[in-house]
Every structure is written in structure tokens, then in C-alpha cells.
Amino acid sequence: MRERESPKAKRYARLVEQEKPKISLFSNVVRAFVTGGIICLLGETIRTYLLYLGLSQPLAGVWMSISLIFLASFLTGLGVYDEIGRFGGAGSAIPITGFANSIVAPAMEYRSEGAILGLAARLFIIAGPVIVYGLVSATGFGLLRSVFR
């Protein structure tokens, strides 16, 4: 029985919207800010240390990213990162650590469907789109920039 377009359904949709518990945007944003800020602060600490060791700016940046990726991968393995994500929301998703989490989580999850079509294939369910859109947009914008500089 479809009521999808009927006035009854429209009235109901309004009711649902009205009864939805209001999420506290403020507290969510503050938690995202703090979580994301701390991850970046950690990154800056690692980077400062690497620069202090004498690495060049670009190299320090790459090693910092790799360190954070390792840390996030390990925390995902231990089952901690999803808790951080539940607290921090976008604050834990946006940093490169969230990218690492999005690779490790399906890898672990689909291990039970085999090491090839399970783990390895599903590894990219979220990272895949990020890489695809990243590469396509970078190539597009980068070429435009190079051609029309």
C-alpha cells in the first residue's frame, strides 16, 4: 500500500521531522573540534621532532602522515578507533587517521570472506572513492592550472 505522495504521507513526514530528537550540534561540533585538533597537534608534534632530527620539510610531512596512519591502523585493530569515532565524529574522520581507519575496518571485517575477495577487495570500500575522486579532481584541476597558468 503506497501512501508515498498522499497528503497523509506528507503530514506524516512532517510529524517524523518534528519528533526527531534534536542532536546537540554545539556539543558535536566542540567534540569534533577537540578530537580533530588533538590529532593535528599530535601530527605537529611528530613533524617538529622529525624536523629537529634534520629531515627536510617534505620528508618530515610524509613521515608524519605515515606515523599517524600506522597509529590509527593499530588503534583500529585494537578496536579503539571506532570508539574515538563515536566521540569525535568528523574530528576523527577528516584527519588522515580516519582514512586509515576506513581501510583497516573493512579489511578486518571481511577477513572472514577470504584473504583475496574478502580482505583485499573490500579494503577499498571507502578509501576507493576517496582515491578515485582525489586523483580525478587533482588531474583535472592540476592540468587546468598547468595549461592556463
Binding site: 600506522f70 586509515a100 580482505l119
Partner: peptide, 11 residues
């Protein structure tokens, strides 16, 4: 790094 860590942790 992300792929290799992901693979290892998955195992």
C-alpha cells in the same frame, strides 16, 4: 603505507 598497514592489521 595505508594499504600495507591495512592489509597487515586485517590479517
Amino acid at each position: 603505507a595505508a594499504i600495507i598497514f591495512g592489509f597487515t592489521m586485517g590479517l
